[in-house]
Simulated assay, not measured.
Amino acid sequence: MNNLKKLEIENYKPLREIVFEHLRESILEGKLEPGQRLMEIQLAEQLGVSRTPVRESMRKLELEGLIIMVPRKGAYVADVSTKDISDVLEVRTVMEGLAASLSAQRMTDEELDELEMISYQFKKCYERNDIEGMIEKDVAFHERIFASTRNEKLIQIAQGLREQVHRFRVRYISEYNNSKELVVEHQAILECIAARNSERASELSMKHIENLASHMMEQIAKYSAQENKDPKK
């Protein structure tokens, strides 16, 4: 099992909530990998807490579909099938198009300035080959667009879909041979939103996610093939 750091306890949050958020983040960021077995005692020791908040957190993680409980075997980090990811990206493509269209109509000048700054920061991270920075700013770019739609249901659903593929994002960006295209695509979407061109903003956003989906599926297929060839598997 990957080593997890002991938690820094915050007095204003219940311990079970801190443990849950930490484990959830560890799964989404790939620190706890798909198929990895999770043992209460070991997790509790690594985090420096009792087994009770760990057990409660694992139940919540199971409800979110991030872990699975196998009778007589224990808990495992849920794997995500290729079809699961394909389905999520298919839905996200349409939602990104809708969000960009609404954003072009509703984004304020202040929010537009913020989006422009995020796009600039993403470009700078690319120039420094700062993968973590690129991921952070890519997420911020899309979240800013969704937030400006003022549609709470759309924002909520998009967040859930985004988290389902988050653990594959590092692999996607770090091995994307044409990362500069991401910079260009972000800028083009930004310019359409600034011009209040809803239709074009929608088209470019959908194409942006289609490109992401295509590359991500290629990466997943490649790693699956490598794992199948590995004699240790």
Rank of each mutant, 00 (worst) to 15 (best):
I155V: 12
Y176W: 15
E64W: 07
H208Q: 05
A225M: 02
Y223G: 10
A195R: 01
K137S: 06
Q36N: 04
V77A: 02
Q226K: 09
S103R: 06
V88A: 04
A100R: 04
S119F: 05
E199A: 11
R144T: 15
L23M: 00
K232A: 08
E10W: 11
V91Q: 04
M206T: 12
M95Q: 13
S119Q: 09
H186Q: 14
P14S: 02
E33L: 13
E64L: 15
L102D: 12
I41G: 00
E210A: 15
V88F: 03
E218H: 09
V165G: 02
E132H: 15
E8L: 14
M216W: 09
L28V: 03
L212Y: 15
D138H: 12
F122D: 04
L212K: 13
N197R: 03
Q42M: 12
E40Q: 10
S148W: 08
L63P: 08
H22P: 03
M69L: 13
L161C: 02
H142I: 04
E10D: 06
K233P: 04
V165R: 04
M39N: 11
E199D: 09
A147R: 15
V91T: 08
E96V: 06
P231Y: 00
H186R: 12
K222A: 06
L115K: 02
R59T: 13
E203F: 09
M107N: 08
E62T: 14
A221T: 09
K233V: 08
I131F: 10
F141V: 07
Q164P: 00
E40D: 09
R162I: 01
S26I: 01
A194P: 01
